[in-house]
Design a protein around this nucleic acid. Structure first.
Length: 871
RNA sequence: GCGGACGUGGCGGAACUGGUAGACGCAAGGGACUUAAAAUCCCUCGGGCUUCGCCCGUGCGGGUUCGAUUCCCGCCGUCCGCACCA
């Protein structure tokens, strides 16, 4: 019997309206059921939602709908990470105010998201650029300040000497400003910092408790914090080479054991000693000046060619005053790490080795692998960086390098230089304090006032918020707040004299470090309401991109601790479960003249192996580029409307989760989307064609007979899909649903002639199928539910329970291997014991043939799994 | 440069804690239905061979094991992060 095709264009808006009218997704804080908080990283309002966003939100939505069906009070909110540079770039390019640009984008993207049928609580929506939000962020800043978690110090920025502005790292390309093309300089500015390093130890050790985080993210965070135990060693300068007034150089090392392999010391270009030495040395000053043009990013420094400059200063070896070593200024030594100075042991470190070879410095092997011969061991092509046995190291010879570490540390702790110990044991962290100052307009103003007499004074809370002025211009580069005629002029809250506002705004990472807490009480006067936020946090399942694995998550973990220590909430870890999803990628197309083309502008011919692309407008062939993350610049984006208009939101949701595992990238293909839509129609047809036969039947599972062929696969799928969703294995869940539909296809064909028992089983299986589909394709599920005469909404109904008896089979099929290769199967009762299985296996034809009359050497029976006969 | 991942048919991928490699889907080929098309349904689909079965096969080279996509060692390739992109 033919039924009409499912029409998502009419169906989807209808059900979205039904959910909205029933206010199904508006979460009440005082609901008594157990809570479940699922959150996807909120988007930056760049202009349009693309399919990559929607994949992320669909994952969260599947979890939210599933958990709701499992009886939880689910919080699933949405907001906008709305401050940031693109709004200012748009202001400069298109003469549109950042606020207008941002709120326009939000309006567009909100309506795009709504088309996806996401079960979001829109009543809690906010944007971080809402005055209401950044007002509370300023409260938090002042609380942190009063708690001693904020400090001011100087740090380096990228300075564009032509534009006279600070550049972000991404705006520095090959050491030049992206707009001006001028060579970037490093410049020191006084800036605001959060003292995240106060929590370094705790942020590190608490990672152990984050069981529901991916191991790779935990590892990345550990490495980022970078705790090391080492020795801080003071090296005396040789008097005749030292600049006036400087007597020593302090070096941090994690390898004091290699101290007899040292052949040079190196300091950062902005180390005080380097500056001092440069005063009387123009060539050195020139070298340091060159280093200052490298930009400030660590990646840029470390990928640059390693260069050093001999200062002429020499230091005395701590164990031998007669032995002196040269001090270099080196472009790869970072002032921010340790003491900004290192000693180089070329035989034990690749970078030191390269450096020594470049500048003709000695390479003395001091550690060799266990068992090597000290008389013949040499370092030639590469250094030896692993643990081992000491050599060429006087009193350390023969010790393990671990013992040598202890020996050097305890000896140097006792030695003195100018009356103080030569060395101190020191725990060092790679993690640096978090610089939050940005010299930009479109961010949360830092609520501080500079007074000539009182110094830095926080804005009194009752005078908050410090609002961004609307009347700004972007005709010139630089921070419009700085040149605003009136905004920065205020009275000092302490003495009443004329004073100046801080014109720096906050890093947008601050905005995203507590939004998850704000969602619990989005309209409260205080940043959060303690009892409410305590009940909802931590977020049960947080979902977002791997690109945020370190900074955003670390900052949020710091913020939660800081909010705890300022009395706003009572927990340390904001995210219980974390999932990092992959990106949606698409081929790129580029015309001969270099223009990027969108997928819609291109026609594809041929198939696998020999595909060619042609520009529709010109008919000319264009190059097919590699799969890349969808981006505006490469034009390889697919927008949700493209799909919803042709196939509907359900098809898009289904496709994005179907093939690739969620943590991996997914390639958007039109064929794949069409295939997903075929399944939508197939499920619709299966259910609506069955509807007349099962309309008035009471659902009942069948355990035996033909009808069990309907109930068993349904209950097996019910069990598997539930487990797969819990594990976020959406692609597997979808494969299980495909299998169920395949399994039901046959038995459902003759339903109109079937007996009562079969119809009851079919009714039950259909209800299960609809529930399985519902988290993924909620609109289709509602339409199917209505088609079989279901009352109420699927979105408001309970997840069914599977019958444990139906998911187990009495007979199982065991693969049988001979010498590890599969040669056949054995069908046997599930409860058969080891001996019975072994006996049955040895009776099999192909086993006897393989054994050729001889007894088997061994029979391995892995219960319920496999049998291996070793001949 | 440092840190982290990933690599399986023509394609996306599945394979639980070391236990049947290729589930499920896409593409392709063949067939049915149709005046025709679309839609739908059925069959084939890693490679090879002496094809009732055997051999090879999970980036490459070794190793451990009764058994390795999975564990170990060494390579190769691709991707992500690196503190002012969000």
């Amino acid at each position: 019997m033919a039924t009409e095709r499912y029409n998502p264009r009419t169906s989807e808006p209808r059900w979205q309206k039904a959910w909205e009218e029933a206010r199904l997704f508006e979460t009440k804080n005082d609901d008594g059921r157990p809570t479940y908080y699922v959150l996807e990283m909120f988007p930056y309002p760049s202009g349009r939602i693309h399919i990559g966003h929607t994949r992320n939100y669909t994952m969260g939505d599947v979890v939210a709908r599933y958990k709701r069906a499992k009886g939880y009070n689910v919080l699933h909110p949405m907001g906008w990470d709305a401050f940031g540079m693109p709004a200012e770039n748009a202001a400069i390019q298109n003469k549109i105010h950042p606020k207008e640009w941002t709120y326009d984008n939000i309006a567009t993207m909100r309506s795009q998201l709504k088309m996806m049928g996401l079960s979001l609580d829109w009543a809690r929506e906010f944007a971080t650029c809402d005055v209401d939000y950044y007002h509370r962020q300023q409260m938090l800043f002042i609380d942190f300040y009063k708690k001693g978690l904020v400090r001011r110090k100087t740090s380096k920025v990228n300075w564009d000497p032509v534009e006279q502005t600070v550049l972000a790292n991404e705006q520095v390309i090959d050491g030049r400003g992206w707009r001006s093309g001028a060579l970037v300089e490093q410049r020191e500015l006084a800036q605001w910092f959060f003292k995240i390093t106060d929590y370094a130890e705790d942020l590190l050790s608490a990672i152990d408790g984050l069981d529901d985080w991916p191991e790779k993210v935990r590892l990345m965070q550990r490495n980022w914090i970078g705790r090391s135990e080492g020795l801080s060693i003071r090296w005396a300068l040789a008097e005749d080479t030292a600049p006036a007034g400087v007597g020593e150089l302090e070096v941090y090392t994690t390898r004091p054991d290699t101290i007899f392999g040292a052949s040079f010391l190196a300091v950062a270009p902005d180390h005080p000693l380097a500056r001092k030495a440069a005063e009387g040395n123009p060539a050195l000053a020139t070298f340091i000046e060159e280093c200052r043009h490298m930009g400030t990013s660590v990646a840029a420094l470390e990928t640059a060619e390693k260069k050093g400059f001999d200062t002429g200063i020499r230091v005395k070896h701590p164990f031998d005053a007669e032995w002196t070593l040269p001090v270099y200024v080196a472009n790869f030594v970072l002032m921010e790490y340790g003491t900004g100075a290192i000693f180089g042991c070329p035989s034990g470190d690749q970078r030191d080795f390269d450096f020594a070879n470049k500048y003709g410095l000695p390479v003395i092997p001091v550690v060799m692998p266990e068992g090597a011969d000290a008389a013949t061991f040499e370092i030639t092509a590469e250094p030896y960086v692993d643990d081992g046995v000491m050599l060429n190291s006087r009193f350390l010879d023969g010790m393990s390098n671990k013992e040598a570490f202890e020996e050097v540390a305890s000896r140097l702790e006792k030695e003195t230089l100018d009356g103080k110990p030569v060395a101190k044991r020191k725990v060092n962290f790679r993690l640096r304090d978090w610089g939050v100052s940005r010299q930009r307009y479109w961010g949360c103003p830092i609520p501080m006032i500079h007074c000539d007499t009182c110094g830095v004074v926080p804005v009194p809370k009752e005078e908050l918020p410090v609002k961004l002025p609307d009347d700004v211009d972007f005709d010139r580069p630089g921070n419009p707040l700085d040149r605003h005629p009136t905004w920065r002029h205020v009275k000092c809250p302490q003495c009443g004299a004329d004073a100046r506002r801080e014109t720096d705004t906050m890093d947008t990472f601050v905005d995203s470090s507590w939004y998850f807490a704000r969602f619990t009480s989005p309209h409260a006067d205080s940043p959060v309401e303690k009892d409410v936020v305590n009940r909802w946090l931590p977020v049960d399942q947080y979902i977002g991109g791997i690109e945020h694995a370190i900074l955003h998550l670390l900052y949020s973990r710091f913020f939660t601790r800081a909010m705890r220590d300022t009395g706003h909430l009572d927990l340390a870890e904001p995210f219980k479960g974390l999932f990092t999803q992959g990106m949606v990628v698409h081929e790129t197309y580029r015309a001969e003249d270099g223009r990027w083309l969108t997928p819609a502008e291109v026609r594809i011919e041929g198939s696998a192996g020999e595909r060619r692309a042609f520009e529709i407008a010109t008919g000319k062939e264009v190059a097919i580029g590699p799969l890349e993350k969808m981006s505006k610049s490469k034009k390889n984006t697919v927008s949700p409307e493209d799909i919803t208009e042709s196939f509907g939101a359900d098809t898009a949701r289904w496709f994005m989760l179907s093939d690739s595992p969620p943590e991996r990238d997914v390639e958007w293909t039109d064929d794949g989307a069409a295939g997903a839509h075929r399944f939508v129609q197939r499920a619709w047809r299966l259910i609506t064609e069955a509807a007349p036969a099962i309309g008035d039947i009471t659902p009942k599972a069948a355990r035996d007979g033909d009808a069990a062929a309907i109930s068993k696969p349904a209950h097996k799928a019910l069990k598997a899909v539930g487990e797969d969703i819990e594990r976020l294995a959406f692609n597997r869940a979808i494969a299980r649903i495909h299998e169920l539909v395949n399994d039901l296809q046959g038995p459902f064909a003759g339903l109109d002639k079937a007996d009562e028992e079969t119809r009851a089983a079919a009714r039950e299986a259909t209800e299960i199928l609809i529930h399985l589909i519902a988290p993924f394709m909620p609109h289709l599920a509602e339409e199917c539910w209505a088609a079989i005469g279901g009352k109420d909404l699927v979105a408001a109904s309970r997840w069914p329970d599977f019958d444990p008896e139906l998911v187990l089979d009495n007979l199982i099929v065991l693969p049988v291997q001979i010498n590890g290769k599969k040669r056949g199967d054995l069908t046997i009762a599930r409860e058969a014991d080891q001996a019975a299985v072994e006996k049955a296996v040895l009776e099999l034809d192909f086993v006897q043939k393989a054994l050729n009359g001889a007894p088997p050497r061994k029979v391995i029976v892995v219960s319920q799994r496999i049998v291996n006969v070793v001949a």
